[in-house]
Design a protein around this nucleic acid. Structure first.
Lengths: 152, 152
DNA sequence: TATTGTTATACTCTATAACTATA
DNA sequence: TATAGTTATAGAGTATAACAATA
């Protein structure tokens, strides 16, 4: 059972793990933010590229993935569309709905960014021996599986 | 040796680790963003609270920690000051400089947020057995040590 | 001259509220 | 009526450029 937020922080080694998760999160997000900035994108635009990599989504669904209001999406998608990264298409079955998808340029940029992220995180990866990498990946996967709130 | 960003993504299990790091980063940042929002704070304000937890910093140094321009800090700190979370004080040795520090309210809020983050990430932690937690924490620590660009 | 910090300006991100069109 | 999406509006976050005060 978790401590309630009223209590002081748990002093067992749980907090060391949480600290480590927080630090690795800032490190990873920092790398992503840097790469995004180099391509003149926000972190959110980067996420759009990642989310739409292998699917097309309606505005409302994309908003849900991102945890944003649909009105926010309108502007976001409009800017991305102006830059030629995404396209909009009317849904055949529901005339109210709009599907968003990556253009060829968007696909290319997405792949490039994934490669750059791998480069950026290379020091982290190479600090570990192959067996340790596998171990870390498996532990993270196990921990992540316990949670529902994540998008791919 | 890292792949250059021109190459396609490396297909070895390095990419599985990077994916896991990315997912855990979004999960952790998501938890932080949610908590921040509940307290009407941005993620950046949350970071300010964390960074100033155990030190007082000059505007320029705080900006460096955050990776922001000092002009950005002026507004950020002004808003936090209005809310009574931080204070400003003139540096005795350098009349140009301003030191920023947490008020008592800021300290309290920082502690509360840390506890809430622990709660929020409890499902992740409890998905692992104690030995696995230690293992994950150690692997993350080792990986993080390899990198310079992080603040506490 | 160089550095510290603020102010002015502009753009992006975000939410809320009001709206149109379709279901 | 309810849902999908856009537009209008407003506030926060961010950067660049110009500035004042101090080093």
């Amino acid at each position: 059972m978790a401590s309630t937020a009223q209590d002081p922080a748990p002093s067992d080694d749980t907090s060391a793990l949480i600290d480590a998760l927080g630090q690795s999160a800032f490190l990873t997000m920092g790398a992503m933010t840097k790469i995004a900035a180099e391509h003149d994108l926000s972190l959110t635009q980067l996420r759009v590229l990642a989310i739409l990599r292998d699917r097309r989504l309606r505005m409302t669904d994309l908003a849900a993935y991102l945890g944003l209001e649909k009105s926010t999406l309108s502007g976001l998608v409009a800017r991305a569309e102006t830059r030629g990264l995404v396209g909009r298409a009317a849904d055949r079955s529901d005339k109210r709905a709009v599907e968003v998808f990556l253009t060829e340029d968007g696909q290319l940029l997405g792949k490039r960014i994934a490669a750059e992220l791998a480069d950026q995180l290379a020091p982290v990866v190479s600090a570990l021996r192959p067996a340790e990498r596998r171990s870390l990946q498996e532990l993270l996967a196990k921990a992540l599986d316990a949670t529902v709130q994540f998008e791919g």
